[in-house]
Design a protein around this nucleic acid. Sequence first.
DNA 1: CGCCAGGGCCATA
DNA 2: TATGGCCATGGC
Length: 212
Amino acid sequence: MKKLPAIYKTLLHIYGPQNWWPAQTPFEMMVGAILTQNTTWANVEKAINNFGKRLSPEFIASKDNDELAQIILPSGYYNQKALKLKALTQWYSKYDYDIKRARAQDSYLIRQELLAVKGIGYETADSILLYALNKPYFVVDTYTKRFLSRLGFNAPNKYEDLRLLIEANIPADINMYGEFHALIVRHAKCQCKKKPSCGVCSLESECKKLII
DNA sequence: CGCCAGGGCCATA
DNA sequence: TATGGCCATGGC
């Protein structure tokens, strides 16, 4: 994994900064992390927009599961995700819905708290930790595994093993963590494997730069 | 029409 | 520990 920084630089060169996470507030980021589970971001945006100006932990706490489900309908799994948003909000209440208080909590402890919330697994937890709480946890997803495998690394199957391995081979910088993960997702959206030329990169030229 | 998307939970062996 | 079924809309 010694070439990860070089791979990151190549991705950054091809696609430029992604400026993740796309959200107006830290809480909106957390909500988006739940809603985007196995779901396209376009559908998540529709669900987010359905909140209008009302998106806040207080609003979610005030609604019952059915009302919440209707609002987030376009994101799919709406009944499950309604429960998850309630659980997320209940956790957040321990910090008085105050992002500064949450950020002041010990990294390891707050990660354990998030992982204990129903509906928050490793990837969602680390997304929230990185993009909302500014904690240095690298976000591993299915794209990351496929990406590294395709580059010739034999990535560990278990989430924690792969996360620790990646973190051990790149600088512990939250800005870079965030960009790297976003760039891997961005790269995965290139349809160059299906279409010879997707208009952004092609398997014959730009994408080949990733095989370092 | 089928496939799958910026996962996670739960039951089963 | 490791699979498999389940959740569900919308774009292609």
